[in-house]
Design a protein around this nucleic acid. Structure first.
Length: 113
DNA sequence: GTTCTCACA
DNA sequence: TGTGAGAA
């Protein structure tokens, strides 16, 4: 992590994150949040999962996982589910915007030789 | 492995 | 707000 990284490495990071999609069980394991709680939150409308084609299994990308993680930490700090979800969604917009810019920069600077 | 619903605290 | 259990 200390050598000069080429632009392709940056692209790999973004591409890697974008392709991370797992089931509720995996999310439950990596976030420590019980699967039932995740479904409960989605039922409340504070998180959104993606359905996989014809199957009914929920799929979660890294943004969803990050959202779940953030909300979980906020709730553990004493926030109510609603307020935690509100704060997280607000922060997610900033994060997405920053990552969008990063992806744009990484894509544009691939030919400066 | 996943989904749902009913019920309870 | 979050869980347990049964059933598909």
């Amino acid at each position: 992590m200390d050598q000069k990284k080429g632009t392709e490495n940056v692209l790999l990071d973004v591409d890697f994150l974008q392709k991370l999609v797992v089931g509720i069980g995996e999310v439950s394991e990596i976030t420590g949040v019980p699967a039932r709680k995740i479904r409960y939150w989605e039922e409340k409308g504070i998180i959104q999962s993606e359905k996989e084609g014809e199957g009914t299994t929920r799929r979660y990308n890294y943004l969803n996982i990050k959202k779940i993680l953030l909300i979980q930490e906020l709730v553990e700090e004493g926030y109510t589910l609603d307020s935690a979800a509100k704060k997280v969604e607000d922060r997610m917009e900033n994060l997405n915007e920053a990552f969008r810019k990063l992806a744009t920069l990484a894509t544009d600077q691939k030919d400066d030789a």
